[in-house]
């Protein structure tokens, strides 16, 4: 995977994996470079991060409701 050749499709896989494992340096660089240029993928990052917050908050709301 070249530093400058990441597509949105490849970026989206890495964006998800970044939440589950430590990316290699080459992956971090390629993703960082791509995100610097790509509005669409920045939105995807924000949405995936939000899903994590929402899921954690879902657990809390589930505990509170007591059912």
């Amino acid at each position: 995977m070249g530093l400058f050749s990441l597509t949105c499709k490849q970026a989206s896989r890495l964006q998800s994996q970044a939440l589950d494992r430590e990316l290699r340096l080459s992956e971090r660089l390629a993703l960082g470079f791509h995100l610097g240029l790509c509005d669409a993928c920045r939105k995807i990052s924000m949405q995936m991060d939000f899903l994590r917050r929402a899921a954690r908050a879902y657990r809390v709301s589930d505990d509170d409701s007591g059912n």
């Binding site: 597509t7 949105c8 499709k9 490849q10 509005d39 669409a40 939105k43 924000m46 949405q47």
Partner: peptide, 11 residues
């Protein structure tokens, strides 16, 4: 070409 077919929405 690996780009989004539809631009992701702004949340």
């Amino acid at each position: 070409d690996g780009h989004y077919a539809e631009e992701p929405a702004n949340w």
